[in-house]
Nucleic acid binder design. Structure first.
Lengths: 251, 251
DNA sequence: ACCTGAACACCGTTCAAGT
DNA sequence: ACCTGAACACCGTTCAAGT
């Protein structure tokens, strides 16, 4: 998957006879790719600078020459994962475009579920600024009828919505003592007093392991497709209604 | 023998002559409270079993007798913080109730912003099951007109929406080198090519530090009130529309 | 310029031992 | 029952040194 190793372009210097040349066993791209592979395979918990170094057969401290620190490395991993987010196919309506954006985001997280919580923490607060994406969102929202302060609010709604559902859908489940934990959740559910909670009791088969709080697996094993689809539609329909409110109130 | 431990408050038990009684300097509640205080004050990064132990003037390993492990302790902290979430004032309409729920959740996070990302990771996937809350959500959604599989989807929409926006609004900003990072974001924004990104350029004052991706402070310092309000309204209006769709399509 | 290597101040957790 | 205490296998990061 060629991540663009633009940095190690090595111009030959014919004039100068070198007895020794830099080892160059490492590059920032290699490190970031290795880190992502580690996270994808073993989860975010087992990510560490030292493990990345081990994976690259290098001393831990060598990492620090290429990336600032642990958090900056995670930021770079994030940027790599989200690289293709802004590559939007064009859509006829702003509604279609936003829906496609949400779906595209979710597909990315599906491929790299272990970075989901990273994104919750970093992307939306963060600095790997993809101006093209932001510009397009604003364009589509203007198209929808938003302007001024309402445009900024709508922008935050779109970004919050894009990451909001999916982040939690793919939130990690406790370590991997899944068996023990699964039986805990099940016991909790089994101990349910169906007189006090008749609706939960009635819908238990549909809820068990398929609804937030009542599940022991995350989106990797049990995708919440219906919930995601309704969430997306609800938000779009809601923005539509609010945009029209604005238009009306201006007349 | 009676070991003279200064700490052991010693209730006299007249009926039973004890030669020795348990020290009881610790309790699970004390540990959870101490952990929350630590997180509130110093952030989630500086939370550790060892620091909690230090705060309680106790050996790190003493913690393990009361709580299973680090993650279970964090789960308990979460349960403590969210204790009051289900204590809902009654509302006339299901729309009002959901709006109040979202607001109540956000107020809780406002008070304990450093646990926001914890919740993203744990609550929605997790086992501190508050059946009363779940039952009420289902009740209100039935009231809204949802039933069957659509009810489960709507439930997931509500829970995902409740945590989705706020989690990211209060997502932590990188460590606390805020000064350096702030200037980084600003430099990125300053380097913006306003011909390619005219809308960003035009709305820059309204966006800078007030919009996801383009901010260097989180909801603690810069609450996204307008975004949150619009997000909530959009989701409610959207659910309303979808519920009516269902009713219509059944006729 | 790029990496090795030692060192420091931390972690979570287990296990044995005390009382 | 509840805590001490030592021990183990980890961390992130700094700094000096090699080449």
């Amino acid at each position: 998957m060629t991540v663009g190793f633009a940095k190690s372009r090595r111009k030959p210097r014919p004039k100068k006879a070198l007895t020794r040349q830099p080892r160059r066993v490492l590059s920032k791209d290699m490190i970031v790719v290795a880190a992502l592979e580690l996270i994808d395979r073993a989860g975010i918990e087992s990510f560490s600078v030292r493990n990345v170094a081990k994976k690259l057969h290098v001393f831990p401290t060598a990492i620090y020459w290429h990336v600032g620190d642990r958090n900056k490395l995670l930021g770079d991993v994030l940027a790599l994962v989200l690289r293709d987010l802004s590559s939007a196919e064009d859509a006829a309506t702003w509604q279609d475009w936003i829906r496609a954006l949400f779906i595209r985001y979710r597909e990315i997280i599906r491929k790299h579920p272990n970075v989901a919580l990273l994104i919750g923490v970093q992307l939306v607060a963060n600095a790997n600024v993809d101006f093209a994406l932001i510009e397009t969102i604003l364009t589509r929202l203007e198209q929808a009828g938003f302007a001024g302060a309402k445009l900024v609010a709508a922008y935050n709604v779109v970004l919050g919505g894009m990451v909001g559902f999916t982040t939690h859908e793919f939130a990690r489940v406790p370590d991997d003592n899944t068996a023990a934990w699964r039986s805990l959740v099940r016991r909790n559910i089994a101990a349910l007093d169906s007189r006090h909670f008749p609706r939960i009791a009635r819908h238990l088969p549909a809820l068990t392991n398929k609804a937030f709080i009542l599940r022991w697996q995350n989106g990797v094993d049990v995708p919440l497709d219906d919930g995601f689809a309704m969430f997306t539609e609800a938000l779009i329909l809601g923005l539509e209604a609010i945009a029209h409110q604005k238009v009306r109130s201006r007349r």
